[in-house]
């Protein structure tokens, strides 16, 4: 397996609390990965750190993307290298049209491609292209429009933070459809999720707790472990005894 992104012994402290504590993960090129774990485990923090968002840049360890350290790269440089993020709650842009929003990062800014990616996420271009990405759109519509923009960008690595949060069943199917498009494009996907339905779309999963990977492997293996051992432990860090049967590493 080719590794597209490697997190090496990442330690991140925010507000005096160690959020990521020696996090080491290899993400394989072209695969759909899932990060699961209890609330506060560090999953969204991991996505934000990979994207290089403000507040997540001062960490120890290294981020290796396609063989090169990107720890010092700005957000836009990472994006131009093919990394992007679908937010748990996408931003609203007063007055900015869906067309301009999608075309902002698109590889092909032509009208035909813009319409195509909107159709790919189940939205009618005639109804949406001239609308503003603002509060008149529902959360599900904004998530789909964000995914359309990311499809148009043709990225190499897509971070999806809770793609199913705040959306209905129809929108979720469109998001699963977008996953298939990413796969067809050869992109790597890292999904942060609490949902079994989303987890099942992944090919490989990592269980994170207290800023560390505590288990990894097939979706079936990790989901079973999560169901059996993590739902009862809430937020606390597993003890060594609890972790003794966990195999971490390649």
């Amino acid at each position: 397996m080719n590794t597209i992104l490697a997190l090496r012994d990442i330690v991140l402290t925010l507000g005096g609390k160690r959020i990521l504590d020696g996090l080491t993960i290899d993400f394989w090129q072209g695969h759909i990965h899932a990060l699961i774990g209890p609330n506060g485990a560090g999953k969204s923090t991991t996505a934000n750190l990979i994207m290089g968002l403000a507040g997540y840049r001062n960490f120890q360890g290294d981020l290796i993307y396609q063989g090169e350290s990107i720890a010092d790269w700005s957000i836009d440089r990472r994006a131009r290298a093919g990394i992007t993020l679908a937010w748990q709650e996408p931003a609203r842009f007063e007055g900015l049209s869906v067309r301009r929003f999608i075309q902002a990062g698109a590889k092909d800014r032509g009208e035909a491609r813009t319409r195509e990616v909107l159709e790919d996420v189940g939205l009618d271009p005639d109804r949406y292209l001239d609308r503003a990405v603002d509060r008149t759109l529902s959360g599900g519509e904004r998530k789909r429009i964000e995914l359309a923009g990311i499809l148009a960008m043709e990225p190499k690595l897509v971070l999806m933070d809770e793609p199913d949060s705040g959306i209905d069943v129809e929108a979720l199917e469109c998001i699963f459809g977008a996953l298939r498009f990413f796969k067809q494009q050869g992109a790597t996907v890292i999904m942060i999720t609490h949902s079994l339905a989303v987890l099942r779309r992944a090919e490989h999963a990592f269980l994170i707790c207290s800023g560390k990977v505590v288990n990894k492997g097939s979706v079936e293996k990790i989901s079973q472990y999560f169901e059996q051992k993590c739902h009862s432990c809430d937020d606390r860090t597993p003890t060594l005894a609890e972790l003794e049967d966990i195999r971490v590493g390649p």
Binding site: L53, D76, T84, G95, L96, S97, G105, G149
Partner: peptide
């Protein structure tokens, strides 16, 4: 940060937000 995560540099992202 959303627009920068699409590859726009900071100045271009600010321009687009203001344009909107």
């Amino acid at each position: 940060e959303t627009l920068m995560s699409r590859g726009l540099n900071e100045d271009d992202a600010v321009d687009l937000i203001i344009e909107g």
